[in-house]
């Protein structure tokens, strides 16, 4: 007894048992309803694309870890999440190689150069997505008619003209064709995982309640989009669709709840997160109106991510300190 050495360590001596892996698994679980909806709407093509995306991401990560002589970090599930998110942001008609290249690029360019998890300045899946979207602007718009969408998909050949902005037709003159309720319930054209705002909203709220993500960035983003679109619509109804249309189409909901809440590429302070979201939302609407050829929401979030270090400086006044406005 007397010579038995006990373990020593710094306090606290208990933890709540939360691990990176569990948080990532929770995030993947929160994405599942929207993913399954995508599978239902787009069939086996979508299932295959998602499987390919996840496999490519994991394979790239394993390969690079091996080449770099690092212990594989596959176990934390981040590669799976990256592959999944990438595949969900791609339309069901996209070729397999597009998803493979995208997932590989996400890991190769977006994640691995920045060291262990937590180093990436931009969300890796967005890096992969925007690389393939910029390189193959036609393939990234291979939209497919969903099973239950009330609107007929316009001819594929017209994709460039008819589906110019952020995955869906955001041409105010066509807005009348869409019912807001249909859009919200997920009866719309778009990439595999983003067409159901309702299920994404539920998944996002689940993450917030589980304290995996915070409310500030997502709601800041939605408020920012709503405000920008609302003002734009009031000023020029023919040039800008209504706020609800902007919020329920394209990757707005997905971006708010699953891209704005990434760890390393978004701020961590309460006001930092909120302003990040608010400005990002406004920027997304601006990019949509300004006619960015593809992916206003992803681009807006990528641009905001680059400013994350600035937002992280907006720290709350510490306990007992007097707020300084210098």
């Amino acid at each position: 007894m007397t010579n038995q050495r006990l373990v020593v360590s710094i306090s606290p001596h208990i933890k709540n048992g939360r691990t990176v892996r569990r948080m990532i698994v929770t995030t993947i679980a929160a994405l599942m309803p929207a993913t399954l909806w995508g599978f239902y709407q787009f069939g086996l093509d979508a299932v295959a694309l998602v499987a390919v995306g996840i496999t490519a991401a994991c394979g790239t990560e394993a390969l690079i870890s091996r080449l770099a002589g690092k212990t594989s970090s596959l176990g934390d599930g981040h590669a799976v999440l990256t592959g999944l998110v990438l595949a969900l942001l791609v339309p069901a008609g996209a070729p397999f190689w597009l998803v493979i290249v995208g997932a590989a690029m996400a890991i190769l360019v977006g994640k691995m150069p920045f060291g262990p998890l937590g180093g990436a300045p931009i969300y890796p899946a967005l890096v992969g997505l925007l690389i393939v979207a910029t390189s193959w602007p036609n393939e990234i718009k291979s939209y497919v008619q969903p099973t239950t969408a009330p609107i007929e998909l316009k001819a594929q050949g017209a994709a460039d003209a008819e589906f110019p902005r952020d995955a869906v037709l955001i041409d105010p003159s066509d807005e009348a064709e869409y019912k807001t309720a249909d859009l919200f319930l997920g009866k719309q054209v778009g990439p595999i995982g983003v067409i159901s705002p309702l299920l994404l909203l539920l998944g996002g709220l689940f993450l917030i309640l589980r304290r995996v993500s915070r409310w500030q960035a997502p709601f800041g983003f939605l408020i920012g989009m709503g405000l920008a679109a609302g003002i734009g619509h009031a000023l020029d109804p023919s040039g800008c669709a209504s706020a609800s249309f902007h919020l329920f189409t394209g990757s707005a909901m997905f971006g708010a709840f699953f891209l704005c809440t990434d760890w390393s590429s978004t701020p961590v302070t309460p006001w930092g997160m909120f302003l990040f979201g608010l400005i990002g939302g406004g920027l997304a609407v601006l990019l949509r109106i300004a006619g960015l050829p593809y992916g206003a929401v992803p681009w807006a979030i990528v641009i905001m991510s680059l400013a994350t270090p600035i937002f992280d400086r907006i720290t709350p006044t510490p306990f007992g300190k007097v707020a300084s406005h210098a």
């Binding site: 262990p116 998890l117 937590g118 304290r211 760890w263 390393s264 701020p267 961590v268 309460p270 997160m273």
Partner: peptide, 11 residues
């Protein structure tokens, strides 16, 4: 492990 930047601590 390295900080993943999840922000739980700040919360």
């Amino acid at each position: 492990d390295p900080c993943v930047g999840c922000g739980l601590c700040a919360m």
